[in-house]
Design a protein around this nucleic acid. Structure first.
Lengths: 241, 241
DNA sequence: AAGTGTGAAAAGTTTCACAGCG
DNA sequence: CGCTGTGAAACTTTTCACACTT
């Protein structure tokens, strides 16, 4: 079996036959081994990869060595065929008749997702929700560390008893530039969200996890992921009848 | 122009010609005016409807009377063709050459989304994140009211200075049954999330907004909407390189 | 002229079903 | 036999393009 190189410079394994999937220039990146085929991966598959990874971590803890697509899929709440398809985008990791090696698979997913996970993350807007996120253990658990927070009123934010240093928002640019921060959690009020986003973009931030109920306008190169709490509840209420 | 009936008992307007979209038995509901055609609406369109509604509210405040698909679409961050398609699922509301009447459109969306919005919502798990959500103004702004919270340690939760009454989790069933609560925000630790979900399902809850990083297993009739914070950050990090 | 409403095409995603390997 | 890997089919959602209305 051809094993895809699994390591810091992770490269998707090649298919043995001409792939039916469309190939794509893929995620922009000038540093690729020249004309590497990059597979067009459904965006939703990336979400699922994170879920698989969580399930695999539990299996690793339990000392289980292999897992079949059907049982892992069940744990993740998807169909087994979908799980297999998702994994196949990145190479061949399973053994027919047996299943997938838990540890290897976990490592491969971590490499696919995790490259940037050691990057510093900062949070802007340490108010009610922001402060809760700073205390939230889930980010750490998945390998992220929020290294600093910024707020218009840092004193008030510090009074919330946080572990993370809270600076005045005017220091935002300094820190972001100095530490090369690329990921930001944005929890400022909607009214100022676009303004702050502009400042973040200007100093090189590449990804924004946006909790403000506002549609941010940013250059294509910047990724925005919206988490809109009220919207989620509204969506739920539509289907509940 | 045929105007769709817009009112509490909102019914999708019929198309004048045979629709190209597939029709569907649609969202289950025994109370429909007998064999009403229900259009198969993309799930994502419902999310967008909420966004349109927010934008429209701003326009109403500004006293603007009509709006074109292109300008509303721009504010919502979508293509104008998509906006028109989304609205067309529910009837014909626009005037060719002119645009959509802001107020009427806002009302129609509210009726589509809002039917259940006056239902009571409760929150289970008033810890760090849960307490922040209880203080979060966004739900109120969109017309939801969290009427009660439950926690294993209600004293600790009350100490967080919340406006909402916090009861011991053992009282969950009583309150949910008594008030006919159908929507729940679930913020308990992952380890107990499934157990609590089972209890909620058992007493008739129909929708769960789940913040626990766990895949809940529930009957098909129960809608679960997952908001997985760490997962969102992980997803972002994949695209940021 | 401006701008909706909508078939039809394109794009994206999931599911099926089975060949083939261990 | 059991289970993966994967083309092909099915399905869903988005985008296009233009007829048509005001």
């Amino acid at each position: 079996m051809q094993t895809a190189p699994i390591a810091p410079g992770f490269t998707p394994g090649r298919r043995r036959e001409a792939p039916g999937q469309r190939l794509t220039p893929g995620i922009p990146g000038p540093l690729l081994p020249p004309p590497v085929e990059r597979i067009d991966i459904p965006k939703k598959a990336i979400y699922r990869l994170s879920i698989y990874h969580r399930c695999l971590k539990r299996l690793v803890e339990n000392g289980q060595e292999t897992v079949s697509s059907s049982s892992l899929a069940k744990a993740a709440g998807v169909k087994s065929s979908q799980l297999r398809k998702d994994l196949a985008y990145f190479g061949q990791f399973g053994t027919r008749g047996l299943g997938y090696p838990v540890e290897t698979l976990a490592t491969m997913i971590r490499d696919v997702l995790g490259r940037q996970r050691l990057q510093p993350v900062v949070l802007v807007g340490a108010g009610n929700l922001g402060a809760a996120l700073l205390r939230y253990q889930g980010f750490q658990k998945e390998g992220f560390e929020v290294v600093a927070a910024f707020d218009a009123d840092p004193e008030a934010a510090r009074a919330r008893g946080l572990e993370v240093p809270v600076y005045h928002e005017s220091e935002l640019e300094n820190h972001v530039r100095k530490d090369g921060v690329r990921l930001v959690i944005l929890c400022v009020p909607g009214a100022v969200a676009q303004t702050v986003a502009n400042r973040l973009v200007a100093c090189g931030v590449a990804g924004i996890l946006n909790f403000s109920p506002v549609v941010l306008e940013v250059p294509d190169a910047v990724q925005v992921n919206n988490v809109d709490l009220a919207l989620e509840l509204e969506h739920l209420s539509f289907f509940v009848r």
